[in-house]
Nucleic acid binder design. Structure first.
Length: 266
DNA sequence: AACGGAGTCAACCGCTCTCCA
DNA sequence: GTGGAGAGCGGTTGACTCCGT
């Protein structure tokens, strides 16, 4: 049994919105507020799908939208956040008031990518173009003091490379992480030390707190390597924020089925 | 002025996630 | 535990504009 469509497509308008449709939508939301997008079109007298209404409001009609050109500061912030989070446009947008995820995504694809290329930087990896991958380097995020009961108590996380041992951050002992260590608990992150270190530097250079509304995200399993990278970055990022939150599931388990979605508020 | 290619961005699509019964 | 409903997300599309020839 399939899922019901979000609207009756044959009875809905598509394409560019007219002024009249915009006004209807604005007036309806002014009166009733946001939410319940599925029933909104009918209630507002619009021949549009609920998703379309939501998108139009969020990306174009919302009164708090900034619009206009991006500033140099916004550019750099987007670049820094992208290096931490990857293509998580909604998370990036959450750090830029008045900007939407769609707007940032478009801006990234049309302007910033080119800007980075002109600087000789790969926009996906944020590394110099043509640089050799460092996958041959060994990285261990050690979790000392692994406990029983399928929990890992991490006393101190450190990053080891052939050349050096770099302390990542101090973590209080005896704090459960909620991680499922039923599989491999050797803590391999799948990241090169260079990658992790890069994330940390960027984190420190940005120094902005994440909004608490994102605290419970990243609960999915079966992460691919890119997602892992974003997740590690996210966790490290959180660790330095004022309302300190840490996830101790830094060691991504075999097959990435780690359930370390519990982000502990200290 | 006309044309075509490149660039831009609003909107759509398909999927995942969360919540709740 | 399961499945449906609703919301949200990221990738893609296509209409429109701009600019060079």
């Amino acid at each position: 049994m399939g899922r019901s469509p979000c609207c009756e497509k044959e009875h809905t308008n598509k394409g560019a919105w007219t002024r009249e449709e915009d006004e209807r939508l604005i007036n309806y939301i002014k009166l009733h507020g946001e939410g319940c997008w599925r029933s909104l079109p009918k209630a507002a007298g619009l021949l549009r799908c609920g998703k379309s209404c939501r998108l139009r409001w969020i990306n174009y009609l919302r009164p708090d939208l900034k619009r206009g050109n991006f500033t140099e500061e916004e550019d750099e912030l987007i670049i820094n956040l992208h290096s931490l989070l990857g293509n998580k446009w909604s998370l990036i947008a959450a750090r830029l008031p008045g900007r939407t995820d769609n707007e940032i995504k478009n801006y990234w694809n049309t302007h910033i990518k080119r800007k980075l290329y002109s600087r000789g930087i790969d926009p996906q990896t944020h590394r110099p173009l043509g640089s050799v991958s460092s996958t041959n380097k060994t990285t261990n995020i050690n979790s000392s003091n692994c406990s029983n009961n399928n929990k890992i108590n991490v006393n101190r996380l450190r990053l080891e490379t052939k050349e050096s041992v770099v302390p990542l951050m101090q973590v209080p002992a005896n704090v459960d992480n909620g991680a499922d260590s039923s599989e491999d608990s050797n803590g391999s992150s799948g990241l090169s030390s260079e990658e992790v270190f890069l994330q940390i530097n960027l984190e420190l250079s940005i120094g902005l707190p994440f909004p608490s509304c994102h605290r419970s995200r990243f609960s999915s399993v079966n992460l691919n390597q890119s997602q892992q990278q974003q997740r590690v970055a996210y966790q490290l990022f959180r660790s330095n924020t004022p309302d300190v939150c840490l996830c101790y599931g830094l060691g991504f388990q075999k097959n990435h089925a780690c359930s370390c979605s519990v982000i502990t508020t200290l």
